[in-house]
Computed example of a mutant assay.
Amino acid sequence: MNKWLEYLKNNDFISVKKYIKNGADTNETNELGESVLACAIRFRCDFDLLMLIIDNGADIFELDDEGVSIFDMAITYNNIDMVNFLIEKGVDVNKTNRRSGFTSLMAAACYGRVEIAKILIEQGVNQDAIDAKGFSAVDFARKMNKKSVLELLDYDKNSPKNTTYAR
């Protein structure tokens, strides 16, 4: 995985292309169970490089050891092109594989990903979903003080439960 990491950190399209041509496994994982594609997203590689990896067999539906998906990674690292691509490929915006029940909208709320939250809402994401501890996307947006995301969500700032956190 070290060669992959070296090329991905440098967003090196040509070296990745040569590495793949020489037989590199696009579904290799690191010690945390993160795939090449997940690492490329984390290193904020260009969309063309991500597509090269995908076109050469990377599994866009894979999960790491914690249940974090490529879709989750795209949201976390604010990769709107990848979010749209994955939705086009059939990713369910309401599905989570995390034991905690943490959803895509919760991630967008936590990180203040306004554009991604808009996309998720347009795709019919369940705004009322709760995680294993009973928290919703609204709760995460309030806790993280992401007012711009709160404005998009079904949020009543005058509700008694919403008198703390962001208003």
Rank of each mutant, 00 (worst) to 15 (best):
Asp46Arg: 14
Asp48Val: 03
Arg42Val: 01
Cys45Ile: 08
Cys45Trp: 09
Arg42Thr: 06
Gly57Ala: 11
Leu63Tyr: 09
Glu31Gly: 05
Asp48Met: 04
Ser35Gly: 12
Leu63Ile: 14
Gly57Thr: 03
Arg44Leu: 07
Ser35Val: 12
Asp64His: 08
Gly33Ala: 09
Asp46Gly: 03
Asp59Met: 00
Leu32Pro: 00
Ile54Pro: 01
Ser35Pro: 06
Val36Ile: 14
Ser35Ile: 12
Asp48Thr: 09
Phe43Lys: 08
Ala40Arg: 00
Phe61Cys: 05
Asp65Val: 10
Asp46Lys: 14
Leu52Gly: 10
Val36Gly: 04
Ile53Cys: 06
Leu49Gly: 03
Leu49Glu: 03
Leu32Gln: 08
Asp59Ser: 14
Asp55Tyr: 10
Glu34Ser: 13
Leu37Ile: 11
Asp48Ser: 14
Ile53Glu: 12
Arg42Leu: 00
Ile54Phe: 07
Val36Thr: 11
Ala58Lys: 06
Leu52Val: 03
Phe61Ser: 13
Leu63Pro: 02
Glu31Thr: 10
Ala38Met: 15
Leu52Met: 08
Leu49Met: 02
Ile53Phe: 12
Val36Lys: 04
Glu31Pro: 00
Leu63Asn: 11
Arg44Trp: 00
Met51Leu: 15
Asp64Arg: 03
Cys45Val: 10
Gly33Ser: 11
Asp59Cys: 01
Cys39Glu: 10
Leu52Arg: 06
Asp65Leu: 13
Leu52Pro: 02
Ala38Gly: 10
Ala40Asn: 01
Phe47Leu: 11
Leu37Ala: 07
Arg44Pro: 00
Leu32Trp: 09
Asp59Gly: 06
Asp65Gly: 00
Ala40Lys: 03
Leu49Ala: 02
Asp65Tyr: 15
Leu52Tyr: 08
Gly57Glu: 09
Met51Gln: 15
Glu31Phe: 09
Leu50Pro: 08
Ala58Leu: 05
Ala58Gln: 09
Asn56Thr: 08
Asn56Gly: 06
Gly57Cys: 13
Asp59His: 02
Glu62His: 12
Gly57Ser: 08
Phe47Arg: 08
Phe43Cys: 05
Arg44Cys: 02
Val36Ser: 12
Ile53Val: 12
Ser35Tyr: 05
Phe47Ser: 12
Asp64Met: 05
Ile41Tyr: 01
Arg44Gln: 14
Leu32Lys: 14
Glu31Cys: 02
Ile60Asp: 06
Cys39Ile: 13
Asp48Asn: 15
Cys45Arg: 10
Glu34Gly: 01
Asp65Lys: 14
Leu49His: 01
Ile53Ala: 10
Phe61Gln: 12
Asp65Asn: 13
Asp59Glu: 13
Leu37His: 08
Gly57His: 07
Asn56Pro: 06
Leu52Asn: 05
Ala38Arg: 09
Ile41Ala: 03
Met51Tyr: 01
Phe61Lys: 15
